[in-house]
């Protein structure tokens, strides 16, 4: 299944990746190979098999609705490249 360059660019845009023309070519080839490998599974008849979204726990563990202490704001902001007061500061969001 050959992925077009256009599809590669679309996925790259959604992932906020900027690719050179060479990279676009290379990823088109590599991603197509991945899709081909997965496509082989399509030949199996799984109509009688329950879809499996997870391989581990059978069901969600739930927790009680109890409040626990939050981080002090200076810790919450410790990794932020920029902050104002106790807010994260980011480049202006248009609109």
């Amino acid at each position: 299944m050959a992925l077009t360059l256009e599809q590669v660019r679309h996925v790259a845009t959604l992932a906020r990746l900027s690719l050179t023309p060479e990279e676009e070519q290379r990823y088109a080839t590599q991603l197509s190979a991945v899709l081909d490998a997965v496509a082989q599974l399509q030949s199996l008849d799984v109509s009688q098999v329950e879809p499996t979204s997870h391989a581990t726990l059978a069901s969600s563990l739930l927790r009680e609705d109890v409040m626990r202490p939050s981080l002090p704001p200076e810790k919450a902001l410790a990794n932020a490249p920029a902050s104002v007061g106790t807010c994260f500061s980011v480049p202006k969001i248009l609109e």
């Binding site: 919450a76 104002v84 007061g85 807010c87 994260f88 500061s89 980011v90 480049p91 202006k92 969001i93």
Partner: peptide, 17 residues
């Protein structure tokens, strides 16, 4: 929540999580 009020200077938005 994104905050775009007076406390944010030009070219900047503030985020409260």
């Amino acid at each position: 929540k994104s905050v775009h009020d007076a406390t944010a200077s030009a070219g900047q938005s503030l985020v409260d999580l």
